[in-house]
Amino acid sequence: MLEIVVNIVFLLLSLALVLSFVRLARGPTLPDRVVALELLVSITVGFIAVHTIASERANFLDVAVVLSLTAFLAAIGFARFLERGGHRDD
């Protein structure tokens, strides 16, 4: 049963990845793209989790730890940059 579920979840996550990439490409403002990037990271962490279960190897979990931390730093950095007067229409 778990194998079927893993495949279904891979499918769901791939769809989510494509959708958030649409928002990343379309914008229209920089904050929109930042939000899309953040969701991309969440989905990537989800992918890593599902892959860990599918392959029974936990090596990739460390990547998930680092990703979840750096995504936060990136969001804060972008917010600072915006408030200090960066361009906002790209």
Partner: peptide, 16 residues
Amino acid sequence: LLIGGLLMLVAALGLV
């Protein structure tokens, strides 16, 4: 896994 995947799909749908 299923709930997590569905929630992320909802999030991406909402984003679009």
